[in-house]
Design a protein around this nucleic acid. Structure first.
Lengths: 83, 83
DNA sequence: CGCGGTTATACGTTTTCGCGTATATTTATG
DNA sequence: CATAAATATACGCGAAAACGTATAACCGCG
């Protein structure tokens, strides 16, 4: 399932979901992307000052990609995803 | 058209494309998102250490959103977009 | 319960942001 | 061309990340 993100928190939540799907720990992901477990923790927590490099490294390590697109109207279903 | 991004450079290029579509200058976008023109410039240049907050503020100001999804195979068309 | 694995947090250091301010450089337009 | 507008770059500063290392808090499972 694709994840819509409009805030750093939502990005973090998405990363976490995909990481768990792949049965990886934060430490395991950290190793793949050459970052510390603590850094992965902050990324997933949605720390707004996290650097883009960290995000992109995580996405690459999880074989994910970003799409930038015009904001969609929120469907009832999408609203559910916010929680 | 949606933009696929796997690197900070591609994110920057996407932002720039959407900004121009909206007939905004870097300074104009900067004002909307409470950042300096110089900061917008670095974001669009794909500076990897740009902070997530800056990216999300820019997306919000441009009425855009992110989607996180598994990497797609590159179609011939998508490969064109890389250049 | 108790424990092993996972995740959150801490401290000191190095690195780098984004800021204000200012200017160089590039690009568009008359 | 000339000139204005837009974009890239510079310097010094304060704030905060990511780092190594370590430990505390949490969570599932026997």
């Amino acid at each position: 399932m694709d994840t819509i993100a409009r805030t750093p928190q939502q990005i973090g939540a998405g990363i976490r979901r995909y990481r768990r799907q792949k049965k990886l720990t934060q430490a395991g992901l950290g190793e793949k992307m050459h970052a510390r477990q603590a850094t992965v923790s902050k990324l997933e927590a949605g720390e707004p000052a996290t650097q883009l490099r960290i995000l992109m490294d995580a996405l690459a390590a999880l074989d994910l990609e970003l799409v930038i697109r015009p904001r969609t109207k929120l469907t009832a279903e999408a609203i559910e995803d916010l929680f």
